[in-house]
């Protein structure tokens, strides 16, 4: 009985230790709170005609900055559409108020 208990407790301890190691793993999402955005303005001064598009560094930079441009465009669009829908709602409310 005592041996069974020891085995059981050891098993629980091993599982708990393994789980704690997994949960302590370096998760990129932990860094997202203080993450700074890429400063793609630095790319604007570069002569794009002289860039070697087969260079992995240039391709990675372009990819990163295109992602940022798309993210900014998406944010601007969603801000614009929410502004429009807010305006439409306001007009609808205004119309109801008239009646």
């Amino acid at each position: 009985m005592r041996i069974k208990q020891i085995v059981k407790h050891s098993f629980i301890a091993v599982v708990a230790a393994a789980f704690s190691v997994v949960t302590q793993a370096h998760d990129p999402s932990l860094h997202m709170k203080n993450a700074e955005a890429p400063n793609c303005k630095a790319m604007e001064g570069m002569d794009h005609s002289k860039m070697d598009m087969s260079d992995p560094i240039i391709r990675a930079l372009m990819k990163k900055c295109m992602a940022q441009v798309h993210a900014e465009d998406g944010a601007a669009e969603s801000a614009g559409s929410s502004e429009k829908s807010g305006q439409a709602q306001h007009e609808a409310d205004h119309g109801q108020h008239k009646h």
Binding site: A35, C40, A67
Partner: peptide, 20 residues
């Protein structure tokens, strides 16, 4: 081969959720 500006762009995690 990276300049400080290129390093900043490639290491910034902002707008980077899709890469992990």
């Amino acid at each position: 081969q990276l300049s400080p500006a290129h390093y900043q762009i490639l290491t910034a995690r902002g707008d980077d959720e899709g890469h992990h």
